[in-house]
């Protein structure tokens, strides 16, 4: 038998989360009054439920100090505002993960720090591109096209790819890219150094800052002034050049920059 004490402890630990998240009525009411304060009539129209059901839900939320009533209008309390803002974050986190589920599910995510996993909602506008049997380099071509419109670049580069280097150097030489920060591991760094062409155009280029990371990072991240992109490794340790996650909005770029800073600082 599970002891009474264990049961009580468990119930206590998850009580609030369970109470909020398992009732559609309560969560819908919180979301409805998050937008603006509303009266019973507004809520009845919006949620399409009878008054009794809505009033019952509101009473429950008033009892735990998440909602208050001021002159016939229901609004969130301070606590309710903190909680609902974070409930929306939770919903958006799940939405964002599910939207690109195949991309996340196919790859090794062990190098993505926990704090970044908690803010997946920032990637809700991002989409992933696939290479297909009829267009094997779709992902790469999309990437190069975006790269050519960038002026500032921060890249975590976990692979030694002459093809990528060729395009980056071209952009530097045409003065399209003004600043490039490159984070690589020691193996890739020594490969760059031992190639005359790369050594000259990257290591000795004033526009380029190359940093060596102790970690053997399994992520290819690009933060540009107008997009972010991420490609990952398969779970068997091989790099996947066929899928790339691309985000062009402010939030996605913020997520990528945080990730870059996490490893470069």
């Amino acid at each position: 038998m599970t002891s009474v004490q264990t049961k009580t402890e468990l119930t206590e630990e998850y009580k609030n989360v369970k109470y909020i998240l398992t009732s559609s009525m309560r969560t819908k009411l919180l979301l409805a009054v998050y937008e603006s304060s509303k009266n019973l009539e507004d809520l009845r129209t919006e949620l399409k439920k009878p008054s009794a059901t809505i009033l019952h839900g509101l009473k429950e939320l008033e009892n735990i100090n998440l909602v208050k009533k001021t002159q016939k209008y229901y609004e969130l309390t301070s606590n309710g505002f903190l909680l609902t803002t974070n409930m929306i974050k939770l919903i958006e986190n799940w939405f964002s993960i599910n939207k690109n589920k195949k991309f996340w599910n196919d790859h090794d995510l062990s190098d993505i720090p926990e704090d970044m996993l908690k803010s997946m909602y920032l990637l809700k506008e991002a989409e992933y591109e696939n290479s297909t049997t009829s267009d094997l380099s779709n992902a790469f071509n999309k990437y190069i096209k975006l790269l050519s419109k960038s002026t500032e670049l921060k890249i975590i580069l976990p692979i030694y790819s002459e093809n990528h280097f060729k395009h980056i150097i071209e952009l530097l030489n045409e003065s399209k890219v003004k600043n490039l920060e490159l984070l690589v591991n020691d193996k890739i760094l020594s490969s760059i150094k031992s190639n005359d062409d790369l050594n000259k155009n990257l290591m000795k280029n004033k526009k380029v800052k190359v940093k060596c990371s102790e970690n053997n990072l399994k992520l290819f991240l690009t933060c540009s002034d107008n997009f972010m992109s991420l490609s990952l490794f398969f779970k068997d340790g091989l790099y996947d050049d066929s899928q790339i996650l691309i985000g062009k909005d402010k939030n996605a770029m913020k997520w990528a920059l945080n990730l870059f800073k996490f490893f470069s600082d």
């Binding site: 909020i20 309390t77 301070s78 606590n79 903190l82 909680l83 974050k89 939770l90 993960i97 926990e114």
Partner: peptide, 25 residues
Amino acid sequence: IYFKTLIDFKNTVDIINDYNEFWDK
């Protein structure tokens, strides 16, 4: 990942409750 985000929400609820006097009103 799902679990991580769920626990993050739980931690938020805990922080709201632990410092209730601070946030409330």
